[in-house]
Design a protein around this nucleic acid. Structure first.
Lengths: 237, 237
DNA sequence: CGTCACATTGAGATATGTCAAGTGGTGTGG
DNA sequence: CCACACCACTTGACATATCTCAATGTGACG
C-alpha cells in the first residue's frame, strides 16, 4: 500500500542533483523552498499514483525505482506511453490546468516525492533555474514521445523490440547484466505488440546469441549483431 | 519557394489572440517585444521549414495554413508526429538546448512567424503571460503526443482512421463539408498505415453512408454510425 | 484532349495476433 | 525441506488484419 514516509528532506535527497532543484545551492534550499510541503511516498509494484482523468493537484519526482505512465481504451487495451526513471518529473498536466492525461503506476518498488502544484508554481516563478529545469523536462518528455511515435507508427515488431533493448542498455557495456524490471506483458504494452510476439523474438535472438536474459535482467552479448539482424530483416527473415 | 514577406507586425497579426502574446494588451506590445526581430515567411505546399537535426535557432508560430511535423527512418519510412494548426507554436527544441527533433513541412500554403530563440527566451523571462502560454503549448503538445501513442499502439486500422476523422471534424456540425488538405498518403503516414488501407476503409464507409468526400474535403454524414461501426468491428466486421 | 499525380480496387503474401497447450521458476504451506 | 500451486513465460498451430504489388480509374491542369 502507498505509504507516506514523511516530509521530504530536500537537502539530503539522494537525487537532488538530477531534480529540478539541482542548480540551487544546498544552503539556499530552505529559503527557496520555504514552507513547501513535499512528502515522500513509498510504493510497491503496481500501485497507482494517479489515474487518467483525476484532477492534477500534484507533480511528482521519482526518487527511486521506475514508474510507467499508461493510457487505456474502454475495452481494456493498454498502452504504456512513457517510462519514468530516476530524478524525472511527471504528472505536470495540472500546470496547464488540465487533469492527468495518463495513469501512473509503480513498475518496481518506488519512492516518489510529491509536490503540490501551487507551491511548485510559485517556486518556479521565482527561480529561473527551477523554471529552466522544468522546461527541459517537458521538452525532453515531448521529444521522447515523438521518438516513440516514430517507433510505433513506422517500425515493425522486431525493430521496435530491438530499438527498445538497445536504448535500454545504452551507456552500459555490452556483456553486462542489466536490470529490466518489466514483464513481457509490459514490454508488449509499451511497444504495441502482444506478449507472444515479444517472447518469440527474444527467444529467437537468444538462440542466435545476440542476447541472454533471466526473468528480470538482460545482457546484450552482441548488440551489433542484433542491429544488423533487425535491419536486414526489414526485408528478409 | 519560402519567401520572406517582411518584418512581422505583431500588433495587426491576425492570430495574435491565439498566440503566446495573446494576454499582452495591444498598446503594450511594442514595449514588450522591443526590437524583437520576427519575420513572416510565406511557404507553399511541401516546402521545408526546418529539418530534423538542424540546430534549433528559431521557434515558429503558424499564422495561416497547416504544418506537418515528421520523423523518418533511414530507409525513408516516414511518420507524421504532429499536425500544427492555427496559432500553434512549434520548433521549440532549442529552448532545451537541443537540435530540432522533427522535420517541419508545409501541408498547405502557409504563413509562419519566425521568432529568434534568444529574443524569445528574454521575453518569456520577463512576461509571465508569455511564459504561461508557452508552458501550456508544451504541455498540450505532449498530451496530444500521448493520445497519439495510444492510437498507434493500441488501436487497429479502422479505429485509428475513425478517431482521426472524428477528431478532425469535431466542433463542426455533421453534414458540413470540412477541409481536409491531406493526401491519402499523408493520412497514412500520420496513422502508421498504408495508403491502400486508408483508401479501402474510406471507400467502405462511403458505401455505407457514414461519410462523403472529395479530393480535399470531407463530410461526416453519420458520425454516430461511424463510431458504432468501428467499435463493433473491434470484434466482428 | 492528354497527361500526370493521386486514388481506388483486386489478388495474393505475410507479419502479427489469437487461442491453446506446455514449461519452469518462485513462493507457500504442510 | 519438500511438494504443490500459481503465474509468467514459451512454443506451436492457426486465423486474419494489413501490407505488397499490380492494374485500373479519375480529377486537375496545361
Amino acid at each position: 500500500m502507498a505509504k507516506l514516509q514523511g516530509k521530504g528532506d530536500c537537502q539530503s535527497c539522494p537525487i537532488r542533483h538530477k531534480s529540478i532543484f539541482s542548480e540551487i545551492p544546498v544552503e539556499k534550499l530552505p529559503e527557496v523552498i520555504g514552507d513547501f510541503r513535499t512528502s515522500v511516498i513509498t510504493l510497491t509494484h503496481n500501485e497507482t499514483i494517479y489515474t487518467e482523468g483525476d484532477p492534477a493537484k500534484h507533480t511528482f519526482t521519482l526518487r527511486k525505482g521506475l514508474i510507467k505512465l499508461t493510457k487505456s481504451l474502454a475495452d481494456g487495451r493498454t498502452q504504456i506511453v512513457r517510462i519514468i526513471g530516476h530524478g524525472e518529473l511527471f504528472g505536470f498536466d495540472g500546470l496547464a490546468g488540465e487533469d492527468y492525461n495518463q495513469t501512473a503506476l509503480a513498475l518496481t518498488d518506488c519512492e516518489i516525492c510529491k509536490l503540490p502544484m501551487k507551491d511548485l508554481e510559485r517556486i518556479r516563478a521565482n527561480n529561473p533555474s527551477v523554471d529552466k529545469a522544468m522546461m527541459q523536462s517537458w521538452i525532453q518528455s515531448l521529444r521522447a514521445s515523438e521518438n516513440m511515435l516514430l517507433d510505433l507508427g513506422a517500425k515493425k515488431a522486431p525493430e521496435r523490440l530491438a530499438s527498445f533493448l538497445l536504448k535500454w542498455c545504452k551507456d552500459k557495456e555490452p556483456g553486462q547484466w542489466i536490470d529490466l524490471p518489466m514483464s513481457r506483458t509490459e514490454i508488449a504494452e509499451l511497444l504495441g505488440l502482444t506478449v507472444e510476439t515479444v517472447s518469440r523474438f527474444l527467444s529467437d535472438w537468444k538462440r542466435k546469441g545476440f542476447i541472454q536474459d533471466t526473468r528480470s535482467t538482460i545482457q546484450l552479448t552482441d548488440p551489433e549483431g542484433l542491429k544488423q539482424a533487425v535491419c536486414s530483416s526489414a526485408r528478409g527473415l
